[in-house]
Nucleic acid binder design. Structure first.
Lengths: 126, 126
DNA sequence: CAGGATCCTACACGATACTG
DNA sequence: CAGTATCGTGTAGGATCCTG
């Protein structure tokens, strides 16, 4: 987790960013929203390249922040299910706006990068 | 900068998050939006606790991504001014939504945290 | 299955110089 | 003023092994 100390002094939305947009949280919330309630392994399989340790950490964080719920079934083998909470669901329109912005502007960012790189490094390979 | 490799496989908004919500970017964009075009030192003074090195890095990144513009005046002493670009400005409604969510839900997050901590650690000091 | 415990490493960031 | 360069470090995250 980021140290949450100072950036917020200059910016009222920094606290939200720390909660909602720290690493791996958007993929987790996204697949939870897309595929509904599911188990640890399913999340692990859908979010490629995340390690179980980190997945656990992020799930704990999201649970603590009230964005998801964790349900433990004391069976053999044990079964744990994760689901978006009401609070987590309230982020949906925000995510939709973000997706819209992505659609509209991501290629502009790419163009800006290309232009910048072309200007700043006229003839270098790497 | 985050390594931008894998999370996006599971989540279409991950690329946007890397661009817009990486560390210090929201404070920078925020004060640029609030106070308009300004110089390096002004940014440094308003965003408390950021070091010049990191501020430079983030400004370069934002410039490369086309979210801000950098204007260099070859004077003595030199003067450099930063300003939000049109593309950066297009994030304004998004940020407003985020601020709204913060107002509505930040205390719920706090409550969730308190409840979680109370339940998980019934009697520990640290 | 769902993780906890350990060990290790990379890199983001801080601190401190120094320049055009 | 507006940065770069260099060095040192904390910690998030990866890899591996182990358990209820």
């Amino acid at each position: 987790m980021r140290d949450t100390a100072d950036p917020e002094l200059a910016c009222p939305i920094s606290p939200v960013v720390d909660i909602v947009f720290s690493r791996w949280t958007t993929p987790i919330l996204w697949v939870l929203h897309q595929f509904g309630r599911q188990r640890f392994v399913e999340l692990e399989r859908r979010i490629t390249a995340i390690t179980p340790k980190v997945l656990t950490q992020r799930l704990r964080q999201l649970e603590r922040d009230g964005l998801i719920t964790r349900t433990y079934h004391a069976e053999v083998p044990p079964r744990v299910e994760y689901e978006i909470s009401e609070l987590g669901l309230s982020l949906a329109p925000l995510f939709a706006n973000l997706a819209d912005w992505a659609t509209a502007s991501l290629d502009k960012v790419e163009q800006a990068r290309a232009a910048y790189d072309a200007q700043k490094r006229p003839a270098r390979s790497l």
